[in-house]
Design a protein around this nucleic acid. Structure first.
Lengths: 151, 151
DNA sequence: GCATGTATCTCGCTCAGCGAGAGAATACGT
DNA sequence: ACGTATTCTCTCGCTGAGCGAGATACATGC
């Protein structure tokens, strides 16, 4: 029988949170007729669009750990759903730019909008200093996972 | 141009953390020749085993959002990998008990062991009061997601 | 006993993703 | 310039995870 310690409880909380977020995403995806991978791609594309960076099939596939054949299939699906369109890069005509359509932004808003608002509201129950602690904590944990992954 | 606020930064941190953890899991799974679903199932089975509760194909499929056909296939894979075995429930002979083998526990240890140790070490950089804040924060965020999911 | 319900499995199918490699455009060495 | 290597994307054929429909076996209420 091991003693109940705070760190282990926190580990389980972290895992539980990711499980909930994954399920939330999976259920949202299913409700909108797209696959988990499609949603992950959408998130990546919207992030890039907000950051103003160009996404090509190659970069998208790399981010999602798909090979080129799978990536082509994914992009085909997103195009068929009217979420993105292909555009030849005039600078390097081997490349294809993936441009997000209005529908994609709307869908992203529907996905994140409500949840983000709820999360921010819940953060209202914490003081500025406490949120700063949470920030430091999350950053530290993310770094640990990223480092472990790199190994 | 919106002002940069702490809550939004925290939302992004939460998302980034789940992405890292998902990738960590996916890469571990690939390295051991199993699919993301198999790993999710393994985690669920080990959790249940630790809690001393019985898992049937029905319960497992429900937890993973698979239908009965997919669940049978999943269980077949795990059996073939030597991670679990089927056992008829003597109380209700329609049911099958999924019993984890030693290999499964070892694999779970290999998956979680190192990461958990690193996470706990990183938590050493925080005071008791700070960890308590992190705990309250994570609990609140998990509740928000769970509630949003239930809607 | 018979109908109804529950737990699991079988069958046939769809389609996401893989490996291999082709096609098209660019970069580079000489 | 010119052929060769490299880069980016797409095509083809295939495997297998997961689905819908339904079969099978056991349990339970009338």
């Amino acid at each position: 029988m091991e003693q109940s310690r705070l760190p282990m409880e926190l580990v389980h909380l972290l895992r539980g949170l990711t499980v909930e977020l994954d399920l939330f995403g999976a259920e949202f995806a299913a409700r909108h007729g797209l696959h988990p991978t499609d949603l992950r791609a959408l998130v990546h594309l919207l992030d890039a669009a907000r950051a103003g960076s160009v996404v090509t099939p190659g970069r998208l596939g790399e981010a999602l750990r798909l090979n080129s054949a799978g990536t082509t299939g994914l992009v085909d699906r997103l195009v068929r759903l009217g979420l993105i369109r292909r555009e030849r890069d005039p600078e390097d005509r081997r490349k294809v730019r993936l441009v997000v359509e209005g529908r994609a932004t709307e869908l992203g808003q529907a996905f994140f909008g409500g949840l983000i608002a709820d999360l921010v509201t819940a953060m209202g129950g914490f003081g500025e200093a406490e949120l700063a602690v949470a920030q430091r904590f999350l950053t530290a944990m993310t770094d640990v996972v990223a480092t472990a992954r790199a190994r």
